[in-house]
């Protein structure tokens, strides 16, 4: 195990610790509300796990700065004829540059000044531009938005059940409830 690995993975390990704490609360605690709290912690930690995956070092949030977006839109309208060439440029430009993204960092010169008159040049400029900004992967975020909502739905349902159980049994401790049930069936 090298130091490199430890630095590369410690994030995950902490998240795993969090998940396991949540999991422990769920299976060890007999209080129904506490169980639900544990479930919450567990699920939140899983969300963190996903988000951790999407992160790229030196990247930014997957929101395209307005000026680039605007430019893109403008460009899109202007050069419908060349749009194919444009998107090809995009594709080829991005992948190799990602490797060097960390080294380049913020040193890359903003190529706005190089904005040329010709449409062809615009295309290549666009490609350069997108190498400069690295985005973290948006997909985990998308998935986790769904997961969070699913989580809250589950929590709400669980809490409703707890309210019902507490009304029926007068307690929310699982041990006591089981005791009451046992007493019930013994007569």
């Amino acid at each position: 195990m090298t130091l490199d690995e430890i630095f590369g993975l410690y994030n995950y390990w902490v998240v795993i610790c969090l998940m396991m704490t949540g999991f422990y609360i769920v299976i060890a605690r007999k209080n129904l509300i506490k169980t639900v709290i544990g479930l919450n912690v567990f699920q939140t930690s899983v969300v963190l796990l996903y988000i951790t995956m999407g992160k790229v070092t030196g990247g930014t949030a997957p929101i395209i700065p307005p000026e680039i977006a605007a430019q893109h839109g403008e460009h899109h309208e202007h050069s419908t004829a060349h749009s194919t060439a444009h998107s090809t440029a995009h594709m080829t430009a991005d992948a190799p540059h990602l490797d060097h993204a960390t080294e380049h960092g913020h040193e890359a010169v903003t190529p706005l000044t190089q904005h040329a008159d010709h449409v062809h040049q615009t295309a290549s400029a666009m490609a350069d531009h997108s190498t400069e900004l690295i985005y973290s992967n948006p997909l985990p975020s998308v998935l986790m938005l769904t997961a969070i909502v699913v989580g809250i739905a589950t929590t709400a349902l669980a809490l409703a059940l707890i309210v019902r159980i507490s009304e029926d049994y007068g307690t929310i401790e699982e041990d006591e409830i089981l005791l009451i049930d046992q007493r019930d069936s013994s007569h």
Binding site: F23, Y50, I165, D168
Partner: peptide, 30 residues
Amino acid sequence: RRAPLAAFQYLIMGTIGATFLLIGIGLLYQ
């Protein structure tokens, strides 16, 4: 009145299962 309790127990187990599934999916995605 045992029905809500049974549902709750199922909910806990089921959600643990679903969360495990989610972790598994996450690792695969990774």
